[in-house]
Amino acid sequence: MCGSRGRNSPGRYDEDFSFVSPVVKYLLFIFNFLFWLIAMAMIAIGVYARVVKHAETALACLAVDPAMMLLVVGVLMFIITFCGCVGSLRENICLLQFFCISLTVIFLLQLAAGVLGFIFSDKARNKVTQMVNNAIVHYRDDMDLQNLIDFGQKEFGCCGAMTYTDWSNNMYFNCTANNPSRERCSVPFSCCIITKDKVEVINTMCGQGMQVVEYIDASNVIHTNGCIDKVVDWIHSNLFLLGGVALGLAIPQLVGILLSQMLISQIKDQIELQNYNLKHRADPWR
């Protein structure tokens, strides 16, 4: 008898009843569809930057190429959100579980990276320094990478990873005697101190030979502090802003995990109801 069944027993519902909420189902679909479009845009931009803009260097310096990083993130995001879209529309538990597990793993990895970065801040700083120095080595090999480094040095008012002499690691700016480059012992123009009160033509060669100039004299022309220290100081000054950004990235992930778990639970209840109804039709006295 129905009265002897549990509160959530399938026998308490009509055959036309559905546990799957259209609100949860289509909200999850819209959520994934929006991020799927963002992933498509990231892939398109990455392909354009990697192939169309400089096809001749398509295999150069993949490890520090911003376009390649954008492509990798875009592809991963495309796969995950595609599974979320199809899984929510088709009410497919396997796709929804893959979507939910993927988001959970990404969230936990981000959390672990933040905690480990805080605990092992010195090692993390050394690793970032190595990455920046590696990017400096390939400065002239990739226009996107060059623009990214120039943008960072201008925005933070810095030069090199730890100091402006780090530019000697680049083959064009190397300060050895046998370097035939016209930029020998120089630093990029983005290292230069540009004062806005001057109206004359800016000297784009202001970084010429700055690596062999005395530190005091060089500091009057270029930024001599490394970008790592500048970025660390900026982080310490903007902890609340960075916390808000981190929270803004975490909330969509948690919302996606919550909605997918709700929909998976509803689909399972619906399958149980359907199985009960099939058994009830086969054996009405059951």
Score class of each variant (00 low, 15 high):
Phe78Trp: 13
Ile93His: 05
Ala282Asp: 15
Thr57Ala: 12
Ile136Arg: 05
Gly160Glu: 14
Lys123Val: 06
Asn203Ile: 07
Phe189Cys: 13
Ala250Met: 09
Leu103His: 01
Val231Leu: 07
Phe118Cys: 06
Ile93Tyr: 01
Val201Trp: 10
Lys127Asp: 14
Ala63His: 07
Phe240Cys: 02
Gly243Val: 00
Arg286Leu: 14
Ile194Asn: 14
Phe19Lys: 03
Val20Tyr: 00
Lys154Asn: 14
Ser186Arg: 05
Ala39Trp: 05
Thr195Val: 12
Cys61Arg: 06
Lys279Gln: 15
Cys83Ala: 15
Tyr13Gln: 05
Phe99Tyr: 15
Val255Leu: 09
Arg90Cys: 07
Gly3Ala: 06
Asp269Leu: 08
Ala282Pro: 06
Met171Cys: 11
Leu247Gly: 10
Tyr26Asn: 00
Ala113Asn: 08
Phe33Arg: 08
Trp167Gly: 03
Glu272Asp: 11
Thr129His: 00
Arg7Ala: 12
Ala60Pro: 02
Pro22Cys: 11
Arg184Lys: 15
Lys230Cys: 06
Glu15Gly: 02
Phe98Pro: 01
Ile119Phe: 01
Leu59Asp: 15
Val47Pro: 02
Ala55Asn: 15
Ala60Val: 12
Pro66Gly: 05
Thr195Trp: 13
Ile235Leu: 11
Ser9Gln: 07
Phe240Pro: 05
Phe33Gln: 11
Gly87Ala: 09
Val245Asn: 05
Ser21Thr: 03
Ser88Pro: 02
Cys159Lys: 00
Ala41Pro: 04
Gln208Arg: 11
Trp234Lys: 02
Asn277His: 10
Pro22Met: 06
Leu37Asn: 12
Gln97Trp: 09
Ile271Thr: 13
